[in-house]
C-alpha cells in the first residue's frame, strides 16, 4: 500500500528520538515538506518548518522540497525570503529536491524567481508530463561517505527537471544510465532532480546532515 507521511502533529512522537543538537529547516511554503521532515526525524536531527525569514535563525541547514517551483518562487518573493535564503546558502548546507533544485539553480530557461546559488542549468519537466514520471535505480558513489554498502539508490522522478549543465565549482553527483545528469553538488549545496523523501532510504538525508555538520564547505 502507498505511504503518505502523517502530518507534523503526528510526527511529534518521533521528535523525542532526536539525539542531535543539530536543527535542519525545511522550506514549508508548499510541497513535500512533511516527507522531508519525517526523514530528518528518522535520521535523528531536529526539524523546523521555514515560512518567514526569521525562521532561518540558528539552523544548520535547509531543505527546499519538491512541489511547484513557480509557486515557491512567488511565495519566497512575497514574503521576503530571497535574499535571506541566498545569504544562508553562503555559510550553510542547502539541498533542493526537484522544484527545490530548480529554485537553487542559476538558469531554468524561463522567467521565474531563482535563488541562483548553484552553478547549474536545469530544464523543467524535461521528461514530459505526469504519465512519463518514473522510478529507476541509480548508482550514486558519493553516498558511500555515509554508508559503505554501495547498493543502488531507488530514485523517484515526478514531472522531473533535468540538470542540463553543471559548471565549476559544481560537480556531477549522479547520472541516469544514458548519462543525463540528475544530481549535483557544489561544496555544501546539493541538488537532486528526484525525490529521496518519497523513499524509505535515508542515505541522502544522512549525506545532507553530514554536509550540514561540515559547512561551510568551499567547492572547487
Amino acid at each position: 500500500m502507498p505511504e503518505v507521511v502523517p502530518n507534523p502533529e503526528a510526527l511529534r512522537a518521533y521528535a523525542q528520538q532526536v539525539h542531535s543538537d543539530l536543527t535542519i529547516g525545511v522550506l514549508a511554503l508548499q510541497g513535500s515538506y512533511w516527507e522531508h521532515e519525517a526523514m530528518l526525524l528518522r535520521v535523528g536531527v531536529g526539524v523546523r518548518e521555514v515560512r518567514l525569514p526569521e525562521d532561518l535563525d540558528g539552523l544548520a541547514g535547509l531543505i527546499i522540497p519538491g512541489g511547484e517551483s513557480t509557486t515557491m518562487g512567488k511565495l519566497a518573493v512575497e514574503f521576503g525570503l530571497m535574499e535571506p535564503l541566498r545569504a544562508f546558502a553562503q555559510e550553510h548546507a542547502m539541498w533542493g529536491t526537484c522544484a527545490g533544485a530548480i529554485f537553487m539553480s542559476k538558469d531554468a530557461r524561463r522567467q521565474q524567481p531563482l535563488l541562483g546559488v548553484m552553478n547549474i542549468e536545469v530544464e523543467r519537466n524535461a521528461f514530459g508530463r505526469q504519465v512519463d514520471s518514473f522510478e529507476i535505480d541509480l548508482d550514486i558513489p558519493a553516498l558511500t561517505a555515509v554508508d559503505p554498502d554501495p547498493r543502488p539508490f531507488h530514485a523517484i522522478f515526478i514531472r522531473a527537471p533535468l540538470i542540463e549543465a553543471v559548471h565549476p565549482p559544481a560537480e556531477v553527483l549522479a547520472r541516469l544510465p544514458d548519462g543525463r545528469i540528475v544530481a549535483a553538488q557544489q561544496g555544501h549545496l546539493l541538488a537532486t532532480a528526484f525525490h529521496p523523501e518519497l523513499t524509505d532510504d535515508e542515505r541522502f538525508h544522512r549525506y545532507f546532515v553530514h554536509l550540514a555538520q561540515r559547512a561551510p564547505v568551499r567547492a572547487g
Binding site: V4, A28, L29, Q30, G31, S32, Y33, W34, E35, G66, G67, E68, T71, C98, A99, Q130, S133, I156, I158, R159, H195, L198
Partner: peptide
C-alpha cells in the same frame, strides 16, 4: 507522488 508535490497548494 504527484499528489504529494501538490500539498500545501
Amino acid at each position: 507522488g504527484l499528489a504529494q508535490m501538490l500539498k500545501g497548494g
